[in-house]
Design a protein around this nucleic acid. Structure first.
Lengths: 106, 106
DNA sequence: ACAATAGGTAGGAGATTTCCTACCAGTCAA
DNA sequence: TTGACTGGTAGGAAATCTCCTACCTATTGT
């Protein structure tokens, strides 16, 4: 299902904004999404295609509209990738806290 | 500090692999990192520059070598961005579980 | 049937990415 | 000091990205 590259899909700010709109407002037709960008509709269509290929959105035709909605599952790949780094930076923060604790009072 | 775009830095598989190597093996000189890629060293240098600009690695000159090490803090931006979507997909999983619970036994 | 609307595809221009081969500067060892 | 080693920069080729205008299909309302 998730054919395209999720990381690459997230690299573009317009695409991240599209995901944010879908998260906040739920299912939206293309025109409604396009209203919030200073960009022609065909460009938006291409961004939506990238998101579709990455499995991050799904479309559902309703009359002459296509309702796009969020499909967050592929983001789990990103979260999983992030996990070990998160553990690493928490360990660093803990170390920092230890150092600060050992400082003489001021 | 984090001048460059973290999301864009993570879009490239070679750069993600570099971060993984630094996470697993700690501080490494460039040549040691380059040994693990089928790529010329100057290209690696450029990838390291992108990671440096994103604040994801720091270099420390030691003799004629430069030791690179991981600086995971900018990844927090990614983790923070991911948060609301993670909540969303957990809610979806919970919904799915509810539906399955209501199914007649088989 | 015809016009208007929604949204995709085609094709292209310009910017950016990603790789390469030189080449350069700094450090170390003989 | 000379030669080898580490790693960066310069410049360029090819691929990819991101935007555009023009155009097409499908659906809806009159």
């Amino acid at each position: 299902m998730s054919e395209g590259d999720v990381f690459a899909a997230l690299a573009n700010p317009t695409r991240r904004e599209l995901l944010r709109l879908l998260l906040e407002r739920g299912e939206q037709p293309v025109q409604r999404l396009a209203d919030h960008f200073d960009m022609r509709r065909p460009s938006l269509s291409e961004h939506l295609k990238v998101l579709r290929d990455a499995g991050l959105v799904v479309e559902q035709p309703v009359g002459r509209q296509r309702l796009y909605s969020l499909r967050p599952e592929p983001l789990r790949e990103v979260a999983d990738w992030l996990g070990p780094y998160e553990r690493f930076w928490r360990a660093r923060l803990a170390d920092l806290r230890d150092v600060l604790d050992r400082l003489p009072d001021e």
